[in-house]
Design a protein around this nucleic acid. Sequence first.
DNA 1: ATACTTACCGAACGAACGTTCGCTAAACTC
DNA 2: GAGTTTAGCGAACGTTCGTTCGGTAAGTAT
Lengths: 224, 224
Amino acid sequence: MPQAGIETRVAGLPLDGRAAAPESHFDRQLARLLKHAAHIFCEKGYEGASMRDLSRASGMSLAGLYHYFESKEELLYLIQKHAFQTIMDQARERLAGSADPEERVRIFIENHLEYFLANKEAMSVLTHEDETLRNGRRGEIRAIKREYYRICFDLLEDLRRARGLEFSGRLAVLSLFGMINWIYTWHNPRVDAGAKQLAEQMGDIFLGGLMNQGNHKRNKRVKA
Amino acid sequence: MPQAGIETRVAGLPLDGRAAAPESHFDRQLARLLKHAAHIFCEKGYEGASMRDLSRASGMSLAGLYHYFESKEELLYLIQKHAFQTIMDQARERLAGSADPEERVRIFIENHLEYFLANKEAMSVLTHEDETLRNGRRGEIRAIKREYYRICFDLLEDLRRARGLEFSGRLAVLSLFGMINWIYTWHNPRVDAGAKQLAEQMGDIFLGGLMNQGNHKRNKRVKA
DNA sequence: ATACTTACCGAACGAACGTTCGCTAAACTC
DNA sequence: GAGTTTAGCGAACGTTCGTTCGGTAAGTAT
């Protein structure tokens, strides 16, 4: 009997380019398959991609793939979970280095864009296939998403309190996520700036907007 | 022989809720099918949706559907083309009513959000299935997209000139589109504000950010 | 040397897919 | 009222899909 149960082995941290090198043959192979799968899902979409595509791209037989995971859906789940977990851990780590509310928001933005552009395929799959998983696996990913959202929300609330601003936290978070997630539809490394510069410019737009509440004309200011 | 050639009849403007009432039986039925199809594509994604789903939802036989369009892909094309064409025509019409650069940007944002929320399913399909069409049909939709993008870009350039601002037009357009397109992933009419209020708040964030260039600390201002 | 586990593979299964064929009946045209 | 077009259907075609079955051959443990 093969391994790869419901938990697909406690999953040492595979893939990710610069992550801690996976130790066993199993982990190394799984990481390789996940990378190919992320590429294919990114290109053709989850539903449009086939296990035969993955077989062809990875050079492993169709049946052999199932030694490493139990279904196509678990494949998507593993890609999304790893990407989300990693970007969040990295955000927490970097945020620990600053106490200034504005700077912390900028750190969050920069971390998001940096990880996104360095892991474009996995992050595109995470972003685009947001409604694809079902039941338990969907729930697990949504829980991580809420956690990540919460981190950002709290950062903005801190800023709001520190500067005595008035804005809807929910709308601010979702506007910000819109700006920074949308890059997967347009970013071209040959013409667009890198993560650091994009983070600064988007940070300027977003934070400038939030903090510039003594606006211009119009604005029958709606209260909260 | 049925009709419905490559152009699927010159297509009087069907569907859209409040659009001019379609005249013929053919147009009325096609509009009804497009509405059901938009709903299904929105829920299950283009690849995940089947013609049998549409048959079930519309009450028409599987074979009967092909009297109204030639393929599943054309179905997607018709949904996207109509939505894009309509939102753009409506934007042009509303923009004709103002000459003030800032107000014109706000009109663009409000029009986009209003049409989006009033035609959520078609607009979600337009936004989410951006890479799905192939060849000629893909090219046609991309051409409309470039046109729409161009309108927004020019609005921002006008504002930039009028106020003597410095920012990357491309990044500004794409950040704005990120903010306003992202709503399809989160907007819930039971908890979130309507289009007018969202447009005002997003307009405040975005325009406040662009026009607040004499920022705060940091910013080793990168030049243009 | 033997037993067990790991790491695969070729072939197939049943279901679902988009599309087409051949047909009917009603609705207009002249 | 004969002829043509429009609107639609049941049944099937050929393909592709995710997954599984039954096997092999190389490690690893004892």
